[in-house]
Design a protein around this nucleic acid. Sequence first.
DNA 1: GCGGGATGTTGAGGTATATCAACGACAGGG
DNA 2: CCCTGTCGTTGATATACCTCAACATCCCGC
Lengths: 241, 241
Amino acid sequence: MTPHHQEESRCESCPIRERAVCATCDSDELQQLEAIKYYRTYEARQPIMWRGDRMEFVASVVSGTATVEHLTEDGRKQTLGLLLPSDFIGRPGRDTALYDVAAVTEVTLCCFRRKQFEELVQTTPHVSQRLLEMALDELDAVRDWMFLLGRKTAREKIASFLMMYYRRTVTPEQQFGAATVDLSLTREAMADYLGLTLETVSRQFSKLKSDGVIKLEGKRKVIIPDVHALAREAGDDSIIA
Amino acid sequence: MTPHHQEESRCESCPIRERAVCATCDSDELQQLEAIKYYRTYEARQPIMWRGDRMEFVASVVSGTATVEHLTEDGRKQTLGLLLPSDFIGRPGRDTALYDVAAVTEVTLCCFRRKQFEELVQTTPHVSQRLLEMALDELDAVRDWMFLLGRKTAREKIASFLMMYYRRTVTPEQQFGAATVDLSLTREAMADYLGLTLETVSRQFSKLKSDGVIKLEGKRKVIIPDVHALAREAGDDSIIA
DNA sequence: GCGGGATGTTGAGGTATATCAACGACAGGG
DNA sequence: CCCTGTCGTTGATATACCTCAACATCCCGC
């Protein structure tokens, strides 16, 4: 075992320790998880899971970006979720995948064999409670996305996406002055997530840029001079409660 | 207490006993739930909960139809979920509602005071496991709806809605020959659920009717001569796995 | 029986976004 | 260095759905 590998496998120093499915585990429970976990890395643009596949494992994303997507025979594609570090893949209690999962960038997963993980869920309340918490949080996020897909304009969709991406990837201490986000997604991947075509995404980026709401540095780096202005473009009600 | 009321409160004879959050409870756990529950009825078109409200209770739908919806200041509305008997309202661990809930028809809820329910979730694994199961099932349903909202045509949306409604309201033993469904939703409510306008919904109903895919009896009763034909119109891939 | 509100249908016309197409920038491999 | 593939931009045109509007139907209260 290389030193690199060893360092990866120590849960205590894991980058997603605080937010992943193991967040609320005590050291005893962590040991149980440690015993059944293994790491796995996927290259960019590789499939992680196909719909209908037998799911051998569930996993946490340690690094990189992946997507959950649904693809039809006639070529339509809708991205159903963006998987960023600490997000969970798979579902205990189901043995075939319902959706495709694909690596967008290089992705490292912390995998747990499904059968063993399911037993663990039965016996360690901290894991099952955290799993419920994460599922309910995701349900809320997905419902917000339903509003976006059903009722927002293309411009609002792009602004909303940038806000979401900003909130999920930029840490609080970085959030001063002009913000920059480094998108890991192509225009096409964003289109699939937003229920648009890639041309419309590109046009709306150009429009937001010429309107001064964002600046572009290269193709993938977005500078947001005024985060509140972008938030207003997203068309969400100001938070009252 | 009226006899009617007494009958309602016996969990053993509850119509949703097999499918609701209490489905996997043993008789001991059922007693605990019985101790903290109360029934509440709402008239059609009445709000059950407003976004931002303090949530005093969580609840199971016993009878009737309700919707979870998101409404913006500028008047756009998107229905995020249809609540039918056995569906669960609210979320333990959150004290203000994120979405509006409204009664579509007259609705009867089996309510549990939130604080007490949360304690119960901590102590009875059957309830928390069932809650997780239901949350994950709903996540799957909502993801299918995301595909509908993002990528389906108006005609496919209507067909998909009818199939979903058929599957959720018609019991297996009724599923012989020509099927009929009795919609509890107005054209406008369907439009809000499908990300369409009510005019488009009406037109697509007319079109499906003139194409012989459905028949109408009155405004709300839909006869489906060939369920498979309707399923084909829904634009979902045939189930392979 | 008669008004009025809620619901549903249908038509005419407008528009946001999709589609089709051309082209530019860039990266990697031979 | 060029070739090829991936990614992104922009333009011209098409179209699915929305908007606005008129009208029909049903139900309920009086």
